[in-house]
Design a protein around this nucleic acid. Structure first.
Length: 520
RNA sequence: GAGCCGUUAGCUCAGCCGGUUAGAGCAUCUGCCUUUUAAGCAGAGGGUCCUGGGUUCGAGUCCCAGACGGCUCACCA
């Protein structure tokens, strides 16, 4: 217990009550009260009942929750209990519960957990309430709740002490309920289509499947470095080789990159692979998935996001990268399709897009493809507000995707954009092991030239492809961004319960690794 | 990583051009109060003004450095 001098007067008052309760033989932390109803149960059961109905003798209910409102008189009080379902008011009278219980009740504060047993009734203002025949202290809270009217608004405190944010802010609770329903809806969507859910390694000896910088950790017993995965792709494809020809995984990816309103170091991805399908099938499936989630969770296909109204009704708009750039820049499409560097450079100029000056150094012969993608993203992303499928990516930026039959410099791939953000990335999968090896080698060359995020060679993956991977299409969906969209949340931190922050002074980590990770 | 902005009581916030003992509401404590719902009435207590330097007769206020946070940009999904 902290020294008295370290306590605020609010904490000291609560500890005094704690000691007084113990002195009177009241356990401030019991675990023998089992509520039979939630607040919502009581409202559902009695919500339509009139005062006369209830006076006719309603059955007693028992509820438990945190005291989030308390209006106390001399010998009676009203309080609101909040549980997972919502709030219910209780009315406590000294002449009903008895002097001893009432004395215990007087030691309860805003923020304590309490259990109430009693019959529902209506107050004279009409609010459904429980007339307490019994009230129990279930947990004494030693620190006060945030202010009842303004709640907790300090963003730093909201993220660092999410538990207080959840207690104080109903819309935050709702956001995370929606998140849960989205993930549940995705599971049901895929299992209904005969996909099986799998879990592949989060710690990988070779970080593959995406272009990103990984976190490194170290396994002491094996004496080897492991990487937190940046994507599950190469493992899920191994499962296609193994005969699981419809698989999905919902799990975390980790990328050692910047933090922003759209980026958290760990984020949740849905990835799924569907054998004998193409990216065209995935376009239809993606529309179906999002529409079903919108119908089930929001009950509408038009909903607000910031200043926009998003409409997910299919079919969604489609844009082909070469056509878009040629058209916007007023340059010939055939030159773009040939990946003519000077034409693409002219397009960047015409569209006012600044391209990475190291592109050519890093990517060599692949540079035109990278540059075209940058030009497109720079020019188009801000206007991709309604759901849009962007197709015809250059093969150079898609080392795991199948080449387009009509446009061999391009691949059968799409990204889905909503509100200027990528939320899906999908393609027909490359299953030609020799082409895959050549693509890896181009990535290795880019890495050697200075691209820290280039893919690395994975010989076992190539060996698996040599055993034969069925033709397939695969897709990744950023769950956090989908939840942002559905909950009208401006920051990814609003949809991640415990987003990453710098260590707070005095509350930072005190554990240090015994074995330091070896130098990468 | 860069620029801009912020940090005052448990919470939400005032605090003017640098000038008495840093304020308010809620919360807390004491008293009264058996249908309130931001309950009410009367009184009281509560501060590392983010941290460390500096300027000044005097710093919450001005300057410098740092910590943490927000926004924008960069990287990226």
């Amino acid at each position: 217990m902290p020294a008295d001098s370290d306590l605020t007067d609010l904490e000291a008052a609560r500890r005094k009550k704690l000691e007084d309760l113990r002195a009177r033989g009241v356990d401030p932390y019991p675990n023998d009260f089992a509520p039979e109803h939630t607040a919502a149960d009581v409202h559902a059961r009695c919500g339509s009942a009139s005062q006369e109905d209830l006076d006719g003798g309603a059955d007693a209910v028992s509820v438990a929750g945190r005291i989030v409102g308390l209006r106390s008189f001399g010998k009676a009080a009203f309080l609101h209990l909040q549980d997972r379902s919502g709030k219910i008011q209780a009315y406590v009278r000294k002449d009903i519960v008895g002097a001893d219980t009432f004395q215990t009740f007087k030691a309860m504060d805003l923020g304590d957990f309490a259990g109430v047993v009693g019959r529902p009734f209506r107050t004279k203002t009409g609010e459904l309430s429980i007339e307490a025949a019994e009230i129990r202290l279930l947990t004494k809270a030693l620190r006060p709740l945030p202010e009842k009217w303004h709640g907790l608004t300090d963003v730093e405190a909201r993220y660092r002490q999410r538990y207080l944010d959840l207690v104080a802010n109903a819309e935050v609770r709702e956001t995370f309920r929606v998140r849960s329903r989205i993930i549940d809806g995705i599971r049901r969507f895929f299992t209904a289509r005969d996909f099986i859910e799998v879990e592949t390694p989060m710690m990988q000896p070779i970080p593959g499947g995406a272009a990103a910088r990984p976190f490194v950790t170290h396994h002491n017993a094996l004496g080897m470095d492991l990487y937190l995965r940046i994507a599950p792709e190469l493992y899920l494809k191994r499962l296609l080789v193994g005969g699981f020809d419809r698989v999905f995984e919902i799990n975390r990816n980790f990328r050692n990159e910047g933090i922003s309103v759209r980026h958290n170091p760990e984020f949740t991805m849905l990835e799924f692979y569907w054998a004998y399908a193409t990216y065209e099938h995935l376009i239809g499936l993606t529309e179906e998935l999002v529409v079903q989630l919108a119908d089930d969770i929001l009950g509408t296909r038009q909903f607000p996001y910031g200043e926009h109204t998003i409409d997910v009704s299919p079919p969604w708009r489609r844009i082909r990268i070469p056509e878009y750039v040629a058209d916007k820049a007023g340059l010939p499409l055939d030159k773009i399709l040939d990946l003519d560097l000077e034409t693409i450079r002219a397009a960047a100029q015409a569209l006012g897009v600044r391209v990475d000056p190291d592109l050519e150094k890093h990517h060599g012969v692949n540079a035109p493809g990278y540059m075209l993608t940058e030009v497109f993203e720079g020019a188009a992303e801000p206007e991709l507000i309604q759901p849009t499928f962007v197709t015809d990516f250059p093969a150079a930026v898609s080392p795991l995707a199948r080449r387009s039959r009509e446009r061999p410099n391009f691949v059968d791939r799409f990204e889905t954009y909503v509100v200027g953000r990528e939320i899906c990335n999908a393609f027909s999968e490359l299953n030609d092991p020799d082409d895959q090896r050549a693509r890896f080698e181009a990535q290795l060359a880019a890495h050697a030239a200075g691209d820290a995020e280039a893919h690395v060679m994975d010989e076992d993956f190539l060996r698996a492809l040599e055993h034969g991977m069925p033709p397939a299409a695969g897709e990744g969906v950023g769950i956090d961004r989908l939840v942002m969209l559905f909950t009208n949340s401006p920051s990814i931190r609003d949809v991640i319960l415990f987003p990453h922050m710098r260590a707070a002074r005095g509350l930072g980590p005190e554990i240090h690794a015994v074995d330091e990770p070896s130098e990468a």
